[in-house]
């Protein structure tokens, strides 16, 4: 019940955060030096004279006061209308329906792979601190953290797809198409998570409750699974919550290389052309994903450690 109330409170807090983010984005966009009317004319090969700029500004609704534009946009949003792209003249929602699932699948898969690989690696490193396995894991973490995504993507394509033909190169037709891009995105996360988990485990292993558990005769698997991991995995959960948003926003390079029609490429084009409705929709989606990612992480944290949902936790514990 306490968890339920906690989640409700956090959901209610989402509204002002998202409203604030979209307002700031709306304002910043209008402070950029290039007029979208001019960008539209440039894309359409029309000479940008004062007359044509004013005409297009009127057509795009950019001649209205700032606050009116913002209220109009919010009103449209209430009707699930994300607006119409200035450049393609296609409703933004039509594009998002096709592109969002691709990016979401990629982001979630990467996160799942990262967590599934990091947990055994982290445990092995912690149990064999400063031994061969730990050194191997450290090397992997170093590689994962230092290899740029684009280089890793090309290496994977060249060796796994071109040379050994194990996975398809580009597209989204089958689940196999998602494997290489997900691994590309996951490797950097594995580097972080496995080291976070290793350190967390090493700290937890020093805790008195581990000594008591051992005294109760608990074996390594039961000790790690039931007690230590639950305690040590919390930093990983926090990081994963933060990374969900980053993964949504940062897939553009991977999407381009693996020819996946996600939201990254769509947003990049929109930035080039100052396509306000697309940029605003993207900011909104990112705000929601970031807030939701953090919320999910916090809920998982609260589940792992119920003290977090209680008022005056520290006092009670003390």
């Amino acid at each position: 019940m306490k968890l339920f109330v906690y989640v409700w409170k956090r959901l209610a807090m989402m509204v002002p955060v998202i409203l604030g983010t979209t307002f700031v984005a709306f304002l910043l966009l209008r402070l950029t030096p290039v007029d979208p009317a001019r960008a539209y004319l440039s894309v359409s090969n029309i000479i940008p004279t004062e007359e044509t700029i004013n005409l297009v500004r009127h057509q795009l609704g950019l001649d209205q006061p700032f606050w009116l534009q913002y209220v109009h946009w919010l009103w449209q949003l209430c009707h699930l209308n994300f607006g119409i792209s200035f450049i393609s003249k296609i409703p933004v929602s039509q594009e998002l329906v096709v592109r969002l699932p691709v990016t979401a699948t990629l982001a979630v898969l990467s996160l799942i792979i990262a967590i599934l690989v990091s947990i055994p690696l982290g445990i092995a490193s912690a149990l064999h601190k400063n031994k061969f396995i730990d050194h191997c894991c450290r090397l992997l973490a170093f590689l994962g953290a230092s290899l740029p995504q684009f280089l890793l993507a090309y290496l994977l394509i060249y060796f796994v797809s071109v040379k050994f033909d194990l996975f398809p190169l580009q597209g989204t037709e089958t689940w196999q198409h998602f494997v290489l891009p997900s691994i590309t995105l996951a490797l950097g996360l594995i580097a972080t998570y496995s080291r976070l988990l290793r350190n967390g485990l090493l700290e937890s292993l020093e805790e008195p409750f581990v000594l008591y558990a051992k005294a109760r005769g608990l074996g390594t698997v039961a000790l790690m699974g039931r007690h230590v991991l639950r305690h040590a995995i919390r930093p990983v959960v926090t990081a994963a919550g933060m990374n969900l948003g980053k993964l949504f926003a940062g897939t553009v390079i991977v999407e381009q290389i693996f020819a996946m029609p996600g939201i990254g490429g769509y947003f990049l084009e929109a930035v080039y052309h100052r396509d306000y409705p697309v940029i605003q929709s993207f900011v909104l989606i990112m705000a929601i994903v970031f807030v939701l990612g953090n919320l999910i992480a916090d809920v998982v944290q609260a589940y792992l450690d119920p003290r977090l949902t209680q008022q005056g936790t520290r006092k009670q514990v003390e």
Partner: peptide, 10 residues
């Protein structure tokens, strides 16, 4: 549709 030039080469 392959947006990236190097990916096109591969």
């Amino acid at each position: 549709v392959i947006p990236d030039g190097e990916a096109r080469v591969l």
